[in-house]
């Protein structure tokens, strides 16, 4: 027990991962699972290398990441602006909260058929769906951040005759920043998911389309390479924002 507990955590983590990959290797090379369903770690790695060397995977990754970031930035702008307007007024909150709660509980992918029928199967449909879906976490977080402004600060603002715009800018937004960043982190996850779904349905360039085509052609190594890259995008984006969140919380 004490011998194991003296091993540093990073080494334990790497050892655990190595064990999982070794089991994966044994399962695939031992023929326990069909190669059509699960490619071996080595085949997956070489599919990744080939895809990166030929530039194909790089282009698809770039397309998906750009879609995700563009939709997310647009959604964040809309969410923070709208959230501030709703957040400063108790009345607006009373009127709009149930509607927002309802819209948020709607699976974002369920609006895809509506978007297809309105806009068609183009890149703007995908972007629209990404924006619609990833607006909610940040929007509700912004409203929440405004709702928790202390009464004393509201009183001060009233005494100083601050305009609504000044109140938003000087008191509301700074107070809401931790909530907003936390909401934006959730929004980014949603944006990635919707980008992939949108690509799969519309055939736009990106990793979503790439893995769909790989699966249809029974090319398991390419399929797993694409899944691994999508996992990497998810990992990097959520860690990046988590770091930003920690830094902001510490700075406050």
């Amino acid at each position: 027990m004490s011998a194991v507990s003296r091993i540093p955590s990073p080494i334990m983590g790497v050892a655990g991962l190595a064990l999982v990959i070794f089991i994966w290797h044994l399962v695939t090379t031992g023929g326990m699972v069909s190669k059509a369903f699960l490619s071996s770690p080595a085949d997956t790695l070489s599919a990744l290398q080939r895809g990166i060397a030929s530039g194909e995977l790089v282009g698809q990754t770039r397309a998906t990441v750009l879609r995700m970031i563009n939709g997310w930035l647009l959604a964040s702008l809309v969410a923070i602006a709208l959230g501030s307007l709703i957040g400063i007024s108790q009345t607006a909150r009373d009127f709009l909260r149930p509607t927002l709660a309802f819209l948020r509980s709607l699976p974002a992918s369920a609006v895809i058929p509506v978007a297809i029928s309105l806009v068609g199967l183009g890149p703007s449909m995908v972007l629209g769906v990404v924006v619609f879906g990833s607006v909610w976490p940040t929007l509700l977080a912004t409203v929440q951040g405004f709702a928790t402004v202390e009464q004393r600060l509201r009183d001060v603002a009233q005494v100083l005759h601050l305009s609504k715009a000044a109140f938003i800018w000087k008191i509301g937004l700074p107070n809401a920043v931790p909530d907003i960043v936390a909401g934006m982190r959730l929004s980014l996850t949603v944006a990635l998911i919707l980008s992939v779904i949108g690509e799969m349905l519309s055939g736009q360039e990106g990793l979503g389309t790439a893995i769909l085509l790989a699966a249809r052609a029974f090319r398991a190594p390419e399929l797993y390479a694409g899944i691994a890259l999508l996992g990497l995008i998810g990992l990097v984006s959520s860690y990046g924002l988590l770091m930003a969140e920690r830094r902001i919380v510490r700075w406050r």
Partner: peptide, 9 residues
């Protein structure tokens, strides 16, 4: 972090 939709295909 692997998006669950990536597992659909």
């Amino acid at each position: 972090p692997i998006p669950s939709v990536a597992l659909l295909p």
